[in-house]
Amino acid sequence: MSALLGLRVIDFTHAISGPTCTNMLAQLGAEIVKIEPPGRGDGFRHYTEHGGAPLLSIPFAAINAGKQSLALDLKSAAGQRIARDLIATADVVVENFRPGVMARLGLSPDDLRAADPDLIVVSISGFGQDGPMAHYGAYDHIAQAASGIAAMNATADGPLKIGIPIIDSFTGYVAVIALLAALRTRDAGGGGAHLDIAMLDAALKLVNTSVAVHSATGTVPMGTGNRGFRLVATSEFYPTGNGWIALGANEQTQVAALFRVLGHPAMIDDPRFATHSARTAHYADLRAWLIETLAGFDAAMLERDLVAAGVAAVRLRDVGEIAGDPHIRQRGTLEQVEVPGDERPLDVVAGFADAARVGARVPLLGEHGDAVLAALGLDPAAIAALRRDGVVA
């Protein structure tokens, strides 16, 4: 489907929610230039099953086919200048950094829109750009915990997460809807916009009827039916001495901070728990230790302390404590995409039948750098100098 043919999008997203948004835009015909950190790229390139060339996880392939990849150091002044030059050629910017990161990179949405009033900037985050929880980190299961979904999915053993990253994906779809509405407004002469899309708001739309029931009756609807996407003990739901807490300690720094907050900083030096692979191998031991240790904490106070320490964590809330909106689902079909280094095509969800685009290709990290930079007017010598300086890779 080519409804968005001619639309140019500069994509500063990673993981699932933002790339899902730009994936749908690509399936609707938009040109997507994906900006990734040199060397590592989008962290989702490293997740779970891999296929084809290096740095091509299957989950990454599923939501990034058909995009161009530019490996650009946004922490450098030269990289920021290139980013601004690219944005000057674009209709839309999509980013899913934590609130404030774009400004620290010299790419404040307000400044970008001041330079181009017709520009549409889509900011996707866990809890929104403002409000008391705006600084909270988020993964899919964190949003499920905060929104009441996990409480509604409880069993006799306690709250239970939905087993797929449903909120991540749904948030991307909500962002697409908001963007399409903003494009219609812009095309009618209303100018651009800065759209604030939150995973929590999208999750709440999924429990919209339960929010309404609570509003009408004062009762909290409970459902039936827990563990983070990385499948490690430090990223899961746990009972504390007073309520449940969802932990999202996936990265090494987060795990070390978690142990410090729990009063056991030396745990990060235990060979069983010192690395991600060790923690995975000793999952049962670490989970048992966390169950015993967390029983001595108050969930609300622990949430406060972990968030302050930079650990994604949230006390589990029921529907009566949170409210919001957004919702859309598209009927999906499969399309085949090419994975470099693998002769077999990969089946991925197109979103809906008319969006299928057979033959889309998953980008290697930085694969389109020369072409993207040349289109900005940089000659081969200038591009070579940028590569030599590590600004692009």
Rank of each mutant, 00 (worst) to 15 (best):
M1A: 15
S2V: 04
L7I: 15
C21N: 11
N23K: 14
A26V: 05
G29Y: 09
I35K: 02
F44E: 12
F44T: 09
Y47P: 01
H50M: 14
G52F: 06
L56Y: 01
I58L: 15
F60I: 00
A61H: 04
A62P: 03
L74E: 01
A77R: 10
I82T: 14
A83M: 10
R84M: 03
A90H: 05
F97L: 11
F97P: 12
G106L: 06
G106Y: 07
D110F: 00
D111Q: 14
L112V: 09
Q129E: 02
H135Y: 02
Y136D: 02
H141K: 09
G148W: 03
A154N: 04
P159T: 07
L160F: 02
K161G: 00
A182M: 08
L183C: 09
R184L: 12
T185E: 14
G190T: 10
G191S: 02
A193Y: 06
N208E: 15
S210V: 00
A212M: 13
V220G: 00
P221F: 03
G225F: 05
G228V: 01
V232S: 04
T253M: 12
Q254R: 11
V255T: 08
P265M: 10
T275G: 04
H282Y: 05
Y283G: 04
A288E: 14
E292A: 15
A295C: 05
G296Q: 12
A299S: 10
L302D: 08
L306V: 06
A309I: 09
G310C: 09
A313Q: 14
R315D: 00
I322A: 15
A323T: 11
R329D: 15
Q330W: 15
L334Q: 14
L346V: 07
L346G: 08
D347M: 06
V348D: 04
D354N: 09
A355Q: 06
R357L: 14
V362N: 01
A371T: 04
A385D: 15
D389M: 03
V392C: 02
